[in-house]
């Protein structure tokens, strides 16, 4: 991460097309909506996963999000604000259904009705030693993110992992830019503290 990083969420090549795909999808072009799904499904899934801590429920809520978004598409006034609007709807689903959930429930390996694992995690092609180190780092990072309170975790995920701009994050969570900026900083300090033993600095 550089100190002048691009804070746009979607890839630069896709951003140019997103507003056009939204415009076409509003007219019922399912192919264009599928392009939007292809760009954003993974990101929405991983955002929701951070909030509900269950791969299966994250997958289910992701699909519900895209269904709801398609049905509400004509209420979106500015097509180039689709990304923030999409994440806001995803967040609303999470909070509607899981406000009272325990934060640390983790699903073990789950299979869907086709016998495929719900969690689709790409396999690392490494030797045993590298795999152990990578797994250890992953566990530490996951522990650090999971230990954050909900309010800090969502802005942390949206800024550090989803790379959305602070203004977009403020729009998604419905808070002021100043409040979001403060919470992102606090979250990043908390995570840095958790992973400090693994830093070279």
């Amino acid at each position: 991460m550089t100190d002048t990083g691009d804070r746009s969420g979607a890839a630069i090549n896709d951003r140019a097309h997103i507003a056009d795909w939204v415009k076409r999808a509003k007219k019922g072009d399912v192919d264009s909506y599928q392009r939007l799904y292809d760009v954003f499904a993974r990101r929405v899934l991983n955002f929701i996963y951070r909030m509900v801590n269950s791969p299966e429920e994250a997958e289910d809520l992701t699909q519900e999000t895209f269904v709801a978004v398609y049905r509400k598409l004509n209420t979106l006034k500015e097509n180039d604000r689709f990304e923030a609007w999409l994440f806001r709807i995803a967040r609303n689903f999470v909070y509607q259904r899981y406000r009272a959930r325990e934060p640390n429930m983790v699903s073990v390996e789950e299979l869907d009705e086709d016998g495929q694992p719900v969690t689709q995690i790409p396999e690392a092609r490494e030797g045993p030693e590298e795999s152990f180190e990578a797994r250890e780092l992953e566990d530490v990072v996951e522990g650090a993110i999971g230990s954050l309170p909900d309010k800090y975790r969502e802005v942390f995920v949206l800024s550090a992992l989803q790379r959305l701009s602070y203004q977009e994050i403020a729009d998604i969570v419905g808070r002021s830019l100043a409040s979001v900026k403060t919470d992102i900083h606090r979250a990043r300090l908390a995570v840095r503290k958790q992973v400090k033993d693994y830093l070279r600095v």
Binding site: M1, A41, A58, E59, L137, L199
Partner: peptide
């Protein structure tokens, strides 16, 4: 710390 998190956080793939 930010780079470490970005490199090592768990990433799900859609079904």
């Amino acid at each position: 710390a930010a780079d470490l998190v970005h490199a090592h956080h768990r990433k799900l793939e859609p079904h």
